[in-house]
Amino acid sequence: MAYEDLLRPNLAPAARLAHTLLGNPTEAEDAVQEAAMKGWRKLGNLRAGAPFQPWFLGIVVRQVRTIQRAPWWTSIRLPEVPVQSAPAIEKWMDGEDLRLAIGNLPRLQREAVLLHFYLDLSIKDVAASLGLSVPGVKSRINRALHRLRGDIASAEMSA
């Protein structure tokens, strides 16, 4: 199977993941584009028989990290606000508390939560994507859930 055939069904999940982590659709697509090229160069590292999706999403996550820690003067882009329908914007606003709470999570907890609850990856695949053990992913998700419950509860009380 050619690389593009492997890549095609994973572009949308990868872009959505990058968007949740970066909050900017243009940067998210650029991150996926860069990750696709890195994946192409590193394809020899993919073990025969290993699933492609967790491997590729791991590259996307690392590319997002690279973008997030880049010095401010290396990349200046004008954000492009996606044109969305009114109902979509309302839904986006409705989930603001949860997005803020997830955004306040430590990096690995945030990535694990989004891979598992947003992209529906199994714990095993989340572990493969983040380079963690399965118990390591479970403990991070559990800590994240504990923290999210507290954050959302306090947000509801203060509202």
Binding site: L11, A12, A15, R16, H19, T20, P25, A28, E29, V32, P82, V83, Q84, S85, A88, K91, W92, D94, G95, E96, L98, R99, I102, L114, Y118
Partner: peptide
């Protein structure tokens, strides 16, 4: 729901 984005993305 919180991270829902339009169908045109990407």
């Amino acid at each position: 729901s919180a991270y829902e984005i339009g169908p045109d993305f990407p």
